[in-house]
Amino acid sequence: MTTWVELEKFQPVAVKMINNSITRQRIAHAYLFHGPPGTGKQEASLLFAMRYFCENKDEHSSEPCHECVSCKRIQSGNHPDLHWIEPDGQSIKKDQIEYLQKEFTYTGLESNQKFYVVKQAEKMTVNAANRLLKFLEEPSQDTVAVLITEHSGQMLDTIVSRCQRIQFHTLSGEHLYQQLLDQGLAESTAKLFSSMKMDVNQAVEWNEDDWFAEARKIVIQLMDKVMNSNEEGYLYLHQVYLKHFQGRESLEFGLELLLIWFQDIISLHLDKQDSVVLIDQMERLEQFHYIVSLSEAKTLIYEVLYTKRRLAQNVHPTLAMENLILQLQR
C-alpha cells in the first residue's frame, strides 16, 4: 500500500498541496485531480479519503494510520460514507449522479462526514454534469468531492471553476522504466510500457498476458506488409489484425503501438538512437527509415491520431482501420 511519502517521490507538487490542506485543516469542498493516466490520482484520492475518515488521526501529519477499521474498510471498498462513481459503460449517467444526490440528502451512516470520488469525470453526460453542479455548488457540511480526470479540457467550465485544481504531472519515463525493470519485466517490454505511461500494476498484468505479446507481433508484421508494396497489408488487416484487436480498447491499444513505431522512425531520422522504444526491432526500423522520410512519418502520425479520434466518434472500427491502412500503404 502506498503512503503519501512514497507518492511524493514522483508527485511532489500535487502531494504537497494536498498535504498542506490536510494539516492546516483547510480542506476544500471539491478537488479536481487531473493528469495523464498512471500518475497516482486514484492512489492520492484513496489516501485522502483514508486520512479523512481515519480514527487515529495525527493532527500534524497527513498520513492515515492504515490500521484502523475505517482505513481497512476504505481499502476493501466497504466504507459506507465513501462513494465511488465510475462510468457505467460509455458514460456516467444521470441516474448515478441522482443516486449520489439522494445519498447526500441523508445523514451519514456512521458519521456526518461524507466523501465522494468521481472517476473519469469527463465521461459525465451533460445532464449528469449539470446535476452534479447543483450540489458541488451547495455542499452540505463536511462533504469532500474529488473528481478524477485525464482530460480536464473536456469538463464543463462551470464544474472546473468550482473545484480546486490539482495537477498530477507526467511521470518521467526514466522513473517508470526503472520501476518496471524492478518488477522483472524484459528491457524491451519495460521500455514499451514506460513510453505508454502505463500504470505499473497494469503493466505487470499485461506482461503476463499472451494477448499482448501476440498483439505486438501482429502490429510489427502489419508494418512489414504495408511498408512493402508487394505485400497486401489490406488483406492482412482483415485476416489477422481485426480478428485479434476486437473492441474499442484493444483497437486503441493497437493504434498506440503504431504511434510508437512511427515515433521510433522519427527518432532514427533525428539520430536519437537513445529514445527508440522498440529496441529489439532496431534492424527493421533502420531498414524502414530509408523508405519513410521524416515529413512522411509525421503525416502518418497525424493519420493514426485521426483514426483514434474517429474511433472515439463511433466511426465503424473496420472502416476506420481500412482507411488508415490505405493511407499507410507504400
Binding site: F104, T105, Y106, T107, G108, L109, N112, S140
Partner: peptide, 13 residues
C-alpha cells in the same frame, strides 16, 4: 421493540 431494532438514517437539512 423487544427483539427487533429498526434504525433509519435521517434526512439532512
Amino acid at each position: 421493540t423487544k427483539n427487533v431494532y429498526f434504525l433509519s438514517r435521517l434526512l439532512d437539512g
